[in-house]
Each structure stands twice: as C-alpha cells, then as structure tokens.
Amino acid sequence: MASKSADAHDLSRPKAETRDRRFAIGVTSFNAPAAEPALHIVSTPIGNLGDITVRALETLAGCDLVACEDTRVTRVLMERYGLSTPLIAYHEHNATKTGPKLLAALDEGKAVAIVSDAGTPLISDPGYRLVGAAVEAGHKVIPTPGASAILAALVGAGLPSDTILFAGFLPPKKSARLARLEELKGVSATTVFYESPRRLSATLADMIEAHGPDHQVCVARELTKRFETFERGTLGEVAGRFAETPKGEIVIVLAPAQAREVDAADVEEMLREALFDMPVSAAAAHVAKRTGGDRKALYKQALAIRKASEGGETGNAGEED
C-alpha cells in the first residue's frame, strides 16, 4: 500500500469518512481512528525504522495529511507500514507558500501531521514556524514523542545528563564558530551539537582551541543504524580518530565546563581586577558568578579592598542592595 503526494487539491480530499486509515505492522493490518482535528507533531525514526511508536503509526494513519521535509524520504516509512495518507512537502524553501495551505486545512477542521526526515520535528528545522502560526490561529497542537538524535546521543555518551544545553549546528566559518564556542565555554551543562561529517574535524580542532585537549567529549555517529559508533574520550583523543571525513550523521556531546578551583589569593586578585572599572557591588557579583562564592561575603571583601586603596574612604559604602 503506497502513499501518494498531495497537490493543491489533495488538501481538501479525500473525505474523512472514505479514506483508508489502515496501517500494518508485519503481516498484520490495523484500522486507525480518525485523528483529532489539530496539528500533530509526530516523531519518526532517526535511522532504524523499527523505532516508530504505535501511537505515531495511528496518528499518521488517522490524519488527513502529512507535511514532511522530503516526500521521498517519508514515503519509505509510509510504505514500510502500509500508510496511505497523502504527503505534502513542507521545508525551509517552500514554507512561505505551503504554510498557508496547511493552516487552511486546519481551518477546515482537518487533522494535519508534521514530520521531519528523521527524529523529532522542529529540532533544527523550520517546523516551529508552522506550530507558531497554528497556535496564533487558535488551533490545537498535539506532540507525539519518539526518537530523538539529541537524547540518543546524550544517554549513550556517558557524560552528565542532569543539565543539558542543545546548541544546534555551529557556524560553518571558523571565526564565527570559535566565537560561538567562546560564548558557550563557561556553560556548566553538557552541551549537544549537530555537525556535518565534512566539518567534524575542523569543529573538533576549534573545540580544542576553546576548551583545551583534555576536555571530555563524545562523538556519536550513525545513531540507531548498522554502523552506530560512540567515540568517547578527551577532545585531543577523539579528534585524532577523525583525521578523515567520516560517513553518516554526527552528534557531538561536550562535557560541562569544570568550575575553576580558586584560593583566597585568586579571589582577591579577581576582585582587584573587577574593581578597576566596576563599582563594589558589581565587582562582587562578577566574581561570585565566576567562582560560585557568596556574594555578600565578596561584597564585604571588595569594600575593604576599595577602602584600603582609597586610604580608608569610599563613596560606595551604601551601594549594596
């Protein structure tokens, strides 16, 4: 049972009461109920087609229309599970033209599903624009969770997962990429990036420049597929394993920044540097953020330094809030 692509006329047909809403798992066929009129965000496999959920299959079968990045890619999934719901391409190059058509279908009370080529929609793709427009127009949005390259890489990396930051794709040019890495340098969270295979070596080199060769990292490749790999170790070690351009999709999981251990002399030096161009309260807050120290204690110390430097007088004694 093959799926078909939707054209402008397909948005208003087939009728809900006549369209085939079956899906198949192996040799067994199931009938899906008509999906609730809404925009359904449906997660699909990131590689292994067996990672689809039953709820996702029911939703794709029960919707009136499936919006996808590439109909050729989604059709493979549809044919695997005997789905016949019409497909329509929706991606960054046609979003302005196709988005209003999808909203019109929602206005007519239809159930519209949106999928990406792989994984959870809206993660580094333009689907968020459609969701935003649907919400603004008063339509219900229903997420159907499932496979995600971010989570698959994170749980397989062996790095802290209590606090995470997804940073998407880094800029392609070296200067901009280094600037972005510097912005993220002090983040006390495990940071997850997507990267293209051809830029992986350059990106790892820039990460070494920003974080040093001893910073822990994991590079996950071809997640859920036959040649899935996790390369774990220091940036220096892992970068050496990718001297040649690898094949497949890449996820980089970078360990959190380590809190700098400082002694009393370090703290005093930081305060003196901060006081050079900051008032006492701002200097205390600045050093507290860098060291994790108590702001009030640092304020008192900074105030004492300021008084000593001014011969026992200060105009900032009342600035603590």
Score class of each variant (00 low, 15 high):
D70G: 07
T71L: 06
T71C: 04
T71M: 07
T71P: 04
T71R: 08
R72C: 05
R72D: 06
V73G: 07
V73R: 12
V73P: 04
V73D: 11
V73T: 14
T74C: 12
T74W: 01
T74H: 04
T74L: 03
T74M: 02
T74V: 02
T74S: 15
R75V: 04
R75S: 15
R75H: 14
V76Q: 15
V76L: 14
V76K: 15
V76W: 03
L77C: 13
L77E: 09
L77T: 07
M78W: 15
M78A: 15
E79C: 07
R80K: 15
R80D: 03
R80M: 05
Y81G: 10
Y81R: 07
Y81A: 07
G82S: 10
S84F: 00
S84C: 10
S84M: 10
S84H: 00
S84P: 00
T85A: 05
T85N: 04
T85G: 00
P86R: 09
P86D: 10
P86I: 03
P86T: 09
P86S: 11
L87K: 05
L87C: 00
I88G: 01
I88L: 11
A89F: 07
A89I: 12
A89D: 10
Y90N: 06
H91T: 10
H91K: 11
H91F: 05
H91G: 06
H93W: 05
H93D: 10
H93G: 04
N94R: 09
N94Q: 12
N94I: 08
N94F: 08
N94A: 02
A95E: 12
T96E: 14
T96A: 15
T96V: 13
T96Q: 15
T96S: 13
T96G: 10
T96F: 09
K97D: 09
K97N: 09
K97P: 00
T98S: 14
T98E: 13
T98M: 14
T98Y: 11
G99P: 09
P100E: 05
P100Y: 03
P100C: 12
P100M: 08
K101E: 12
K101W: 13
K101I: 01
L102C: 06
L103V: 13
L103Y: 04
A104T: 13
A104D: 14
A105L: 02
A105G: 04
A105Y: 00
L106T: 02
L106E: 05
D107I: 01
D107G: 07
E108K: 12
G109R: 05
G109I: 02
K110T: 04
K110D: 08
A111K: 11
A111T: 04
A111H: 03
V112M: 03
V112E: 06
V112K: 08
A113S: 14
A113D: 02
A113W: 00
I114E: 06
I114Y: 01
I114L: 14
